[in-house]
Design a binder for these strands. Sequence first.
DNA 1: CCTTCATAGGTAGCAACGCTACTTGTCGGC
DNA 2: GCCGACAAGTAGCGTTGCTACCTATGAAGG
Lengths: 112, 112
Amino acid sequence: MKAQALHGHLDALLLAVLERGALHGYAIIEALRVRSGGALDLPTGTIYPALRRLERAGYVASSWSTVNGRERRTYQLTDAGGRALAGERTGWREFSSTVGRFLGPDQPPAPA
Amino acid sequence: MKAQALHGHLDALLLAVLERGALHGYAIIEALRVRSGGALDLPTGTIYPALRRLERAGYVASSWSTVNGRERRTYQLTDAGGRALAGERTGWREFSSTVGRFLGPDQPPAPA
DNA sequence: CCTTCATAGGTAGCAACGCTACTTGTCGGC
DNA sequence: GCCGACAAGTAGCGTTGCTACCTATGAAGG
């Protein structure tokens, strides 16, 4: 899968991954790869700037820890980040159902 | 809905609209608005350059016709465009199921 | 007659976003 | 000592869609 199509949804993905618990950058990349079944293999040059963007926005908070001489910056979701994630989920649902209407419904929104 | 999230999927949408029959630019905008239930209201500055991009790529062909002194450029899907659309559909399904895995149809995957 | 609106097509320049390529540094295995 | 995996980061680029404009016709309203 071409990752460039992520445009605009990467932030939501990152927040979603951090929802399950704080992780450091490298671990986030791995979590994305594993949870997507290998479909998402994002380069560090994509992740780190995105995390800083999220931190500037106040959606994640970071803290340094040194493990075996390795500097790790661990990111965790803030309250604002959680709220943002909820909004992103709603936005995603709208977006995917709208585009899906044109590109063929792949998962017709199951009526609750 | 913020339209900027379309990134990377606009071309697919345009091809999908033209799949049902040739239309001129303005009509394409209306078709998108109507079929999306108003969610997609794209400015001309988005559509026209996109159509030219698709034409350069050989996915659509255009022809001029003058109707009541109005110049209309009608776009229609080419064979290559149809094939591209099929690919875009597949890509969309992959993309949406991948992102959906993180953003959930609704809730974070409940521990079954 | 003239203005305004809807139709119709278009361009220029901008900003956002993710990517490639590169750099720095530690640790473990050869 | 060197290479590769881990870990974090920066610089610069290209694509993409957006805002803001411009041109032009026909219909409606004053």
